[in-house]
Design a protein around this nucleic acid. Structure first.
Lengths: 157, 157
DNA sequence: TTATATGCAAAAGCTTTGCATGGGT
DNA sequence: ACCCATGCAAAGCTTTTGCATATAA
């Protein structure tokens, strides 16, 4: 858990919620806190509901509503896993990251890569699009001896 | 509709199905033919079911089963649309393509880009993964005057 | 004949919605 | 007071599964 990111994101949530004439609410706060801690990479709404079950708050309906609100405010990224279930993660304005899925184990590794970002920006420019978001998912199998790892940031999730 | 791709893919389906000790079936044939024509870019299973409704064949269950079979045989790509609904398109062994979604209109444009492919291959190598698949979705808004379009292949879908 | 393919119907899981209640400002 | 936030329950939609029947080989 990246505690710096967590705190930065919670601050952002507070500011954006305040700036959208929404009132503070117990469920939204609980969902935001849970996501700041456990939603740094690809969680489903049912997982959030489970995570809040012990607190005796956060009905299914409210959690879906809160997640939709946070997404609309640009505070969450929604990346579909390919299995027909929507997955969310907190959106960090300072860092993009993408995902590589180990087909053998199902493990998800998050990574950032400057060259990939540049290639995406170039492609969008060539296509005549102003880019507002982009998702990349790689699928493969982990090699025994990785080539020299130059990706800037790499973390098992 | 790319009729060359359509025929090439239908041939491939026939060969792979034959090579997997599966028997020929009316629904699988109808689904494959529909996909070869209308599934060159991102369709959902309910759309396939609708498309076959007039033929009086292709129950929901059978279509889901056939699509899963084709996917398992590597004949379909499954790309999540971000909304929690699985989308499929025929997998062409000769060409990858990716998608850019116009956030303003919802239009999907398919494109291929050699530099992007190279950047993805590089990133996978650095991460120590042998790549078996990759999905890229860009989201943005179309500019009035596109910069010189250098993407190799570009088609509205 | 035998395993696969299909249809029907029900069930399971994710997501949304209507309505009444609770709570922030 | 007003109106947003929440819970509950029901409904909607996508997807899976059980079981009986039909069909290819």
């Amino acid at each position: 858990v990246d505690s710096e990111l967590r705190d930065r994101w919670l601050d952002l949530v507070q500011r954006r919620v305040a700036g959208a004439n929404m009132r503070s609410g117990a469920v939204r706060l609980a969902v935001a806190e849970w996501l700041a801690r456990d939603g740094q990479c690809l969680v489903t709404v049912p997982q959030i509901v489970d995570g809040l079950r012990d607190r005796r708050l956060g009905s299914q309906a409210s959690v879906y509503r809160v997640v939709e609100q946070l997404f609309s405010l640009g505070l969450l990224r929604r990346v579909a896993g390919g299995d027909g279930i929507a997955r969310y993660e907190i959106a960090d304005p300072q860092h993009h990251h993408h995902h590589v899925v180990d087909e053998a184990t199902g493990d998800v590794v998050a990574f950032t890569d400057r060259e990939l970002e540049a290639a995406i920006a170039d492609a969008a420019r060539r296509l005549g699009f102003e880019l507002v978001a982009h998702d990349v998912i790689l699928r493969g199998e982990r090699l025994r001896v990785p080539a020299a790892t130059r990706a800037q940031d790499q973390a098992r999730v």
